[in-house]
């Protein structure tokens, strides 16, 4: 366990400069933006003279040189002060924190579904390679990959909410029914079925293709032939020898794809009016609330780093060949 931890920690240490690059990059991006906070404020107030502008710039610390501003900005962030949200009138950190749990639940469900369904379909396809189940599954994978998630979401709403009236068309829970306990859990689950399907189908397609290719690759290796020659049953060879090795690229991909998935949640959460981080990102672009938007960038970057840290731990547990160097 110690060597696993050491490896993952080393990878975590590597992400410190990455985070720093992101922060400096965002700061420079804002410097490039036409007009600063004070211009935006003055425009909101309906104009103001040069003296007012100068005093405001002093208040906001915009009267000092760019490197000093950068330094102050970094120090502020280290104390987790993300500034004030212009539209919510609250600190950005608390606005984001309120939305985080919805996105976390949504993401983990979508990820779990895409991973397990992709795994099963990939194994089935690889078992009957070039047979009809393989052709069917591979074709479905290609089609799933090409479906825009927001369009799929709308079509699912038409089918399951409007025509069949089976599932709610949006929101996170039924408002004003005061559900508790199991009833509340089921209510949230019913609200999440369609969003999860819309977001995860594209990732399901990626996982199933990866799993299929990875299974085919592993099945040609010598140790599989040895296991078969030992007289082990096909099911045993598959479960104990092929699957564990074929899973490794899948696990790596969870880490790589998590950031893309988080980006995809922006559109899906907007379609289904889920009060999560993605919808907040969309709202803050529409309302030009840059403070909130940058806060979301930071929080999502940290989330991606944390998920990759967990993936590293898992990977090292699955693959005994990995040793911390």
């Amino acid at each position: 366990m110690k060597r696993v931890g050491a490896l993952a920690l080393r990878r975590l240490a590597q992400s410190v400069p990455v985070l720093l690059i992101i922060l400096v990059g965002l700061f420079l991006l804002l410097q490039l933006a036409p007009g600063d906070t004070v211009d935006a404020l003055l425009a909101q107030m309906g104009g103001g003279d040069a003296a007012v502008a100068a005093r405001l710039r002093q208040d906001y610390g915009l009267d000092v040189s760019v490197p000093v501003q950068l330094g102050r900005y970094l120090v502020r962030l280290l104390s987790f002060d993300l500034g004030m949200s212009a539209i919510y009138g609250k600190p950005v950190a608390s606005v984001i924190f309120e939305r985080l749990s919805v996105t976390a639940l949504f993401m983990s469900c979508a990820l779990a579904f895409a991973f397990s369904a992709g795994l099963v379909l990939g194994v089935v396809a690889a078992r009957r390679v070039n047979g009809w189940p393989d052709t069917l599954i591979s074709t479905l994978g290609l089609v799933f990959y090409a479906i825009p998630s927001f369009w799929l979401g709308l079509m699912l709403i038409v089918l399951f909410s409007v025509k069949l009236a089976w599932l709610p068309p949006g929101g996170f829970e039924s408002i004003g029914e005061g559900l508790t306990g199991l009833a509340h859990v089921l209510d949230v689950a019913r609200h999440l079925v369609l969003p999860i399907l819309s977001l995860s189908l594209i990732f399901l397609a990626i996982y199933l293709r990866l799993m299929r290719a990875s299974m085919l690759e592993v099945m040609t290796l010598d140790f599989v032939r040895t296991a078969r020659a030992k007289g082990l049953s096909e099911g045993h060879v598959l479960r104990r020898h092929v699957l564990r090795n074929a899973l490794l690229p899948m696990v790596t991909f969870v880490g790589l794809q998590f950031s893309t998935m988080l980006g995809g949640s922006v559109v899906v959460e907007s379609v289904f009016s889920l009060p999560g981080l993605g919808r907040l990102a969309f709202e803050s672009v529409v309302q030009r609330d840059l403070n909130t938007l940058l806060g979301i960038v930071l929080v999502s970057a940290v989330l991606v780093i944390v998920v990759n840290f967990i993936v590293d731990l898992l990977y090292a547990k699955l693959d005994p060949r990995i040793v911390a160097r």
């Binding site: 992400s15 400069p17 990455v18 985070l19 690059i21 992101i22 990059g25 965002l26 991006l29 804002l30 490039l32 933006a33 790589l256 950031s259 893309t260 998935m261 988080l262 980006g263 995809g264 922006v266 559109v267 990102a281 969309f282 803050s284 672009v285 030009r288 840059l290 938007l293 940058l294 979301i296 960038v297 999502s300 970057a301 991606v304 780093i305």
Partner: peptide, 23 residues
């Protein structure tokens, strides 16, 4: 590579939103 990782760490679509919001 650290710069590349920075771009990979920030979700693409959210970075796209930032660029649209700024430019």
């Amino acid at each position: 590579m650290r710069v590349t990782e920075a771009f990979q760490t920030v979700p693409n679509f959210i970075l796209l939103l930032v660029l649209v919001a700024v430019f």
